[in-house]
Amino acid sequence: MVPFDLSMIWAVIIAFGIIMYVLMDGFDLGVGILFPFAPDEQARDVMMNSVAPVWDGNETWLVLGGAGLLAAFPLVYSVLLPAMYIGVFLLLAGLIFRGVAFEFRFKANTSRYLWNWAFAGGSIVASFAQGAVVGAYIQGFNTEGLVYVGGALDWLTPFTVLTGLGLLAGYALLGCTWLIMKSEGYIQDWAYKLAPKLLAAVLLVFVAISVWTPWIDPSAYARWFSSIGLIWIFPLLAGLCALQIFRSLRKRREAMPFMATMGLFVFTYLGLLVTKWPYIIPPNHTIWDAASAPESQLFLLLGLLFVIPIVLTYTAWTYWVFRGKVRAGEGYH
């Protein structure tokens, strides 16, 4: 009926949506993670101001991804959400608390410290839950037929705790390098000092996960070691990005550390995708098993092709309007 593989197109759209979300909400979650460690209250004002104009646009990608999954790959939706039941709740609760903290912190005086904690706590919980989802995805899901049959806490294992902490460190690094780009003076000095430590933590966890994964998932070992192919380019490029972060931090470059951190995320993400391809619900279901009916995929695709350029343009415009340094006492009130 349809001359091209809609599932393939949708897989690319969803994969694109996920990495957009990770990169963009990643840095503003990271700013929240770093919140308790900020040098003082004025620094917190600047930190929050640096992400305030863009954070809710960033979360657009999460909701779009969630709704898109139901429409294009309903099996993912109906297996992943039950499997991550408790994790999804923590994720949503975390996102709600930090979202509301954004609104009320600037309007609060005496209750400000409470909103600080809501912002930091919400960001940390949401980031950890997202990292645990990545770990659970690598582990695979216990399905029978088309239904999840595992327990409520199957997703919470030492491995997923590690991936949770890994993403926590990764987002913190994104947030830290974002601050280097957006701040100056003592706040920037603080971020410059913190970034190498975060990078070290990220690399440590990434190496641990890479070594651990083949034990969890034998097919990952087969993919990476049976035929030494082009896929090794991804870890190589990720490594180069890490090197670039170190070098640019030492030279006190302002934008490069953030760009290179995004590169590190992208290539790690691509490495993860090729490890699992074409499985969208490991270990049993491929993207074609999980797909909805072609007419449904097509029906939504038409609307999405119209809207994605608008969202991208709007996003780019917002970042352009709010470009440059954020200074204390300025900005969002």
């Binding site: 909701v63 779009l64 969630g66 709704a67 898109g68 139901l70 429409a71 294009a72 309903p74 099996l75 939706y77 109906s78 297996v79 992943l80 959400l81 039950p82 039941y85 999804v88 709740f89 949503l92 088309l146 239904v147 999840y148 909805s292 009916a293 007419e295 449904s296 029906f299 939504l300 609307g303 999405l304 809207v307």
Partner: peptide, 28 residues
């Protein structure tokens, strides 16, 4: 948006061909 999947996954899956696009259009 997540309630359907977490608590009503059989329903979400069975009705996804219709509900998926409709709810997505609402988001859009």
């Amino acid at each position: 948006a997540f309630q359907f999947g977490t608590n009503w996954s059989n329903f979400s899956y069975a009705a996804s061909n219709f509900l998926g696009p409709v709810l997505s259009y609402e988001v859009i």
